[in-house]
Each structure stands twice: as structure tokens, then as C-alpha cells.
Nucleic acid binder design. Structure first.
Length: 576
RNA sequence: GACUGAUUAGCUCAGCAGGUAGAGCACCUGCCUUUUAAGCAGGGGGUCCGGAGUUCGAGUCUCCGAUCAGUCACCA
């Protein structure tokens, strides 16, 4: 009965699976396969006319990606984790004796594109000049029951590429199999993280883990995901940031702590936002934001070099140069540069007027900080394509940042802009507990004014500050965005293995029980559903003769092997 | 959440001005012992996203819904 839901090709593959079993071949063997080399190594190491012992006896495994069968000889492409190589199968080499089953039946009939096999043989170059493995023996390692999308390629040109975004993201495993460039992005992503980790570890900073379930979602302003702890009977939030916990560790006496953290924000999704995302946050004691700027530059330059061997990286139409030093400009100068307005010392009302003049929408809940942020966001941010540090943010926008050492009303904060987007954010951290309390209270006032993004007050964090937190500087950088920039990916979905999607539409299963209860045998009930009957009324509206025809037809078509009912029987089913 | 567009075979896509649903690859049968987007000759395969409507007749027109994508809104 199971063939009812399957395509023709899937049925054929299941039949092949059964035939393999009938031949005594285990399509899913348990034992280790003694692979001794990767495809890419073979291609690198092969030299014409050079006797290479290792290549005389290779043992590789992977997935069959294409087959070209030509009578008693065949070619196939095998793909492993590192690449692809062509295989050459010759009937009389595979089957030296009388019995040609392994070639004629197993290889030619029962194997398919997508199957995973292991082969042993020697490396040679074909007349057409392609380095190939001449197969002496092969072994089925895993039978594939679903046909893969077929992607063909010639001279670097790809035909029938598997491009549908929905399928690529939902079935990333398929995407990874047939689109080799995809793998590359994720390898780079890991390389970015490893480069950063090394950079921090070299300096003696400690990688730590802090809570993801928090009772106060602090450290940033964003709507959280809420969950519930049954045993404690309290709400818990998935963290929107880990900043306040890392600072507690600085209070505790560590010189430098960092965490690659999954954060969660219950907000819109688009090309640059996913509800869960990864941020690196690092805090270093006794440093300030000027030090942190140099540190950040050095780190990013190093990443670019590690990935590309150069500081110049293509992103869309632009070439971004991550060579140190990056441009630095204050937020006020940036606003002056792009709007002509000098907002230094302006009151909230004056700022509101400027917004109006600049055609920027405001609402009454917006304080000075938000107004300035709106001007910057609307008029300036997108202009900073090359890496640029925007420094000295207004105090109202930065409730966790130390006041500027010399400029009144500002804080010691920078954001790194690249490609017109925020990439990193850093401060000289506020360690004055009394000031911190005032800032939180100010946030509370904003929230009472209707700003639903103002920060929550975390009293335990304030208590920690009261014990004394050494001066320090912290920096956060979005790993997903950094990966996008470093791999020329235009969508965050391309740098996440499994981007958030709406749940797959479950095919509406009309319960066959309803038919069974009418007295229809279970097998035939399933056939009826296959035939598209989803309700009793629908069934009763169909003439008995037609129904009988449909049922017998499907039975034959799908080779179900059921005994056809008589017209009278069918009549009784729908009469009841 | 709003607007626009997409949804047809396993995959990539055609399909008109309503009239029995098409191609290439994949699949099946046969031929072919160094091919390569292999080739040659045959063949099967579709709830045209779902539902309702208009019509003698809907993949095609109208409405409702689902999913995806893009833009915007939201998002320091």
C-alpha cells in the first residue's frame, strides 16, 4: 500500500532495494569502509607518467552523482566531502569470472544517482584527459530512495541548477549535495569563528558560557521570546543578549571573557534578520573603547586575510577593503556631513523639528536618543560602505555606556559600519553603579512613555556593579552578518544552515477511519483517499460504476495486488 | 502586518485568446568496452499549490486560502 504516496521513480528505487536484498547484498551495511584517500587528494597528487604507489590502490567512498553507461563499460562521478572524481567501471574487471551479476545487474540496474558506494581501484587518465579511478571492486554503502535534483555542468556553466530558495533552505542537505558552493560558505563561516577564537585565546581571554534562559532579558532592547519553567512556575525569556552576564564575570575577576552566543529576538524577519542569530561578545578589563577599536580592526583584518589572503573582499558591487586603519568619524560629524545640521547641544524639541525638516517620521515616545538615532539611521548609516567607526554616541541611546571623558552628553561608544550596515558595537563599559541605576530608571521612564524597547532593570546586575567592576571595554559583533560580508552572501539565510521558516504545510490528511467506519476495508479506504476523495458526501455523489472503475484502475496502475471488489460490494459500501 | 510576483513531471522550465497537458535532464526497455551536459532507438510518468465561482468546458478568467520570494513596516 505504501506505493500510493510515492512517485514512479521512488517505487522503482524501492524495488531495486528489495532486489539488492534478494541478491544477498546489504544496502545499509554496518561495518567500517576503509577509505584511504579523498577525491581531491587524488587529483592533486596524480602526475602523468609518475609511478605513485599510493594511487595504485585507492579506496574511496561517496555519492554517485552521474552515470554514463556504455554497454560493457561505464563512467560515473563519485562525490565525497572534498570533491568529485570520475570512476571507470569495466564489466570484466568488476566481474572476472563467469558471473557478471555485479556489473550487469547491481551496477547497471540497481544503483542510482544518489547512492553511496565505496570503490577500490587505481588512478589513471582517460583518453579525454580526465583523471579517473579504474574500479576493481565496489560496495554498496547506502541505497538512496529519493531521486536527487540533477544538476549538470559543462565548461563551468551550470544547467538546471537547483535554485528554488524554499527547497534549498528546507532541505539544506539536498542543497549541500548538489550545490558545492554552498558548502564553501559554511566552511568559511567556521573559519571566521576559529580565527576569532584563536585571536582571543592567544591573548589569554577565556571562552565562557552564560545562561540562555534568563528571568530578565537584559543587555539590549528587543522583544524577547517567552517560555515557562514548570518546576519553578515562572516565566523565562530566551536571551536577547548576554552582555550583563559577561560583565558579572568581569566583576568576578577575569581579565577577558568572550562568548559566541546564540541570541533570540522576537521581531521581523528579512534578508538580514533571523529570529535566532549568533553574536560574539568580548569584554576586556582595564581597556577603553579606543583600545577596543584597534583590537576590532586587527581582528577583522586578520579574518579577511585568513579567508581570502587579501584585505580586499567583494560584496555585491563593491570591493570592501578591510585594511587597517578604518576611518573614524563622530556621530555628530556624520550627521553634519550628510544632513548639514549640527545637532550638538540641541534640545529634544529642536531635534524633533530637525527630523520634521528632514522628512523623518517621529512619535511622541521618542526621546533625544531615539531622535538622533532616527536621523543617523535614515540619512547617514547607508552611506558608510567601507569599514568606518562611528564614535561618541549620545548618552540617551546608550544606557550601558560610560560617559565620555571630555564631551558632555556623549558616551564612549563606537559602532563599526560596513556596507551601510552595523557590524559591531562597542563601549567603554559603564561601571559607576549609581550612574547605571539612573540610566536604567531613565529607560523605565521611556518605557512608560510607550517605548516598548526600553531596557528592563536588572537589580542583580546593579548589585554586582556596586561591588565594583574594573573599568573595561566590551564589543559585540554579529557573526551572521560578518559571514555574509566575508562570503558575499546577500541573505542571512545563505549563511545559516537552517534558517527559520514557517512550518511546512502538512498535507491535509483526511482520516481514512471515516471510510473504514462506513464498512470499507482499510486498503480500499486508502485507495479512495489516493483517488482524491476527502469526504463522505463526495463519495456518495459519485456513481457506483465510476467508483468501481477508479478503484480497480488504481489497483492495477499501482500494482497494489488487491482483489478487486465487485460492483455490488462497492454499492454496499456507499449505501451504508 | 501591507503591497507585488511566483507555485505545472523527481529537477529546471514552456504552455493560449478558456477546448484531451509539453520540452530538456532524470526514470524504464534495448544497443554501445576510455565517455563526459556521452550518443542512438523506443517507452512510462501530472489531484497543473488548495478551495469556491463563472462557463457546455478552467492549468488558463474571478474570489478566498496556503507557502515562498522581493519591497516596505517593525528591528539601536
Amino acid at each position: 500500500m505504501e506505493q500510493l504516496g510515492l512517485s514512479e521513480q521512488e517505487i522503482i528505487r524501492r524495488e531495486a532495494l528489495q532486489e539488492l536484498i534478494n541478491l544477498g547484498i546489504d544496502p545499509y551495511p554496518a561495518e567500517e569502509y576503509p577509505v584511504n584517500i579523498h577525491t581531491s587528494d587524488i587529483i592533486e597528487q596524480f602526475e602523468d607518467g609518475v609511478e605513485n604507489e599510493k594511487l595504485q590502490n585507492v579506496c574511496i567512498s561517496g555519492r554517485i552523482m552521474s552515470r554514463r553507461i556504455m554497454g560493457n563499460a561505464s563512467f560515473a562521478e563519485l562525490q565525497d566531502s572534498k570533491g568529485k572524481i570520475q570512476l571507470y567501471f569495466k564489466r570484466d574487471d568488476i566481474c572476472p569470472g563467469e558471473d557478471k551479476t555485479m556489473y550487469n545487474v547491481v551496477f547497471k540496474k540497481l544503483l542510482d544517482i544518489g547512492d553511496i558506494i565505496g570503490v577500490k581501484g587505481f588512478v589513471f587518465r582517460t583518453q579525454m584527459g580526465e583523471i579517473s579511478v579504474h574500479v576493481k571492486e565496489f560496495k554498496v554503502l547506502c541505497k538512496s530512495l529519493r531521486p536527487l535534483p540533477i544538476v549538470k555542468e559543462k565548461d563551468g556553466k551550470v544547467f538546471d541548477a537547483f535554485t528554488d530558495p524554499e527547497q534549498r533552505y528546507r532541505q539544506r542537505y539536498v542543497d549541500l549535495i548538489v550545490n558545492p558552493q554552498v558548502k564553501d560558505v559554511f566552511i568559511k563561516r567556521t573559519k571566521i569563528i576559529n580565527t576569532m577564537r584563536e585571536f582571543f585565546n592567544e591573548r589569554g581571554y577565556l571562552e565562557v558560557e552564560t545562561p540562555i534562559l534568563q528571568s530578565i532579558p537584559g543587555g539590549a532592547a528587543a522583544r524577547p521570546f517567552i517560555t515557562h519553567h514548570n518546576a519553578l512556575n515562572i516565566p523565562l525569556y530566551l536571551r536577547i543578549a548576554n552582555e550583563l552576564y559577561l560583565k558579572r564575570l568581569i566583576v568576578g575577576g577575569f581579565d577577558g571573557v568572550y562568548e559566541f552566543a546564540k541570541d533570540f529576538r522576537n521581531e521581523g524577519m528579512d534578508r538580514t534578520h533571523n529570529p535566532e542569530f549568533t553574536v560574539l561578545e568580548i569584554y576586556v578589563a582595564y581597556k577603553d573603547y579606543l583600545w577596543m577599536m584597534n583590537f576590532t580592526e586587527e581582528m577583522i583584518e586578520k579574518i579577511a586575510l585568513a579567508l581570502h589572503g587579501t584585505t580586499k573582499v567583494q560584496y555585491g558591487d563593491n570591493i570592501i577593503d578591510y585594511k587597517r586603519p578604518f576611518r573614524r568619524i563622530t556621530m555628530y560629524d556624520a550627521i553634519k556631513e550628510y544632513t548639514g545640521y549640527d545637532i550638538e547641544g540641541k534640545s529634544e524639541d529642536e531635534l524633533r523639528q530637525i527630523c520634521k525638516d528632514l522628512d523623518i517620521e517621529t512619535d511622541p515616545s521618542m526621546g533625544k536618543g531615539k531622535l538622533i538615532d532616527a536621523i543617523f539611521g535614515e540619512k547617514c548609516e547607508h552611506n558608510f560602505i567601507q569599514p568606518t567607526f562611528i564614535i561618541d554616541y549620545p548618552v540617551e541611546m546608550s544606557p550601558l555606556t560610560k560617559k565620555h571623558r571630555s564631551k558632555y552628553g556623549l558616551t564612549e561608544r563606537f559602532e563599526l559600519m560596513v556596507n551601510g550596515k552595523e557590524l559591531a558595537n562597542a563601549y567603554s563599559e559603564l561601571n559607576d553603579p549609581i550612574d547605571q541605576r539612573h540610566r536604567f530608571e531613565e529607560q523605565l521612564r521611556l518605557s512608560q512613555r510607550g517605548d516598548d524597547e526600553a531596557m528592563y532593570i536588572d537589580h542583580d546586575f546593579l548589585r554586582a556593579l556596586e561591588y565594583g567592576m574594573p573599568p573595561n571595554s566590551g564589543m559585540g559583533i554579529g557573526i551572521d552578518r560578518l559571514t555574509m560580508f566575508m562570503t558575499n552572501s546577500q541573505s542571512i539565510q545563505d549563511v545559516l544552515f537552517f534558517p527559520q521558516m514557517k512550518p511546512e504545510k502538512k498535507s491535509e490528511v483526511f482520516d481514512e477511519k471515516v471510510f473504514i467506519e462506513m464498512g470499507i476495508p482499510e486498503d480500499w479506504a486508502k485507495v479512495l483517499i489516493k483517488a482524491g476523495f476527502n469526504s463522505v458526501t463526495q463519495l456518495k455523489q459519485t456513481s457506483v460504476g465510476k467508483l468501481h472503475q477508479i478503484l480497480c484502475g488504481l489497483n492495477k496502475k499501482h500494482k497494489l495486488g488487491l482483489k478487486n471488489p465487485s460492483v455490488d460490494e462497492v454499492d454496499q459500501w456507499i449505501k451504508s
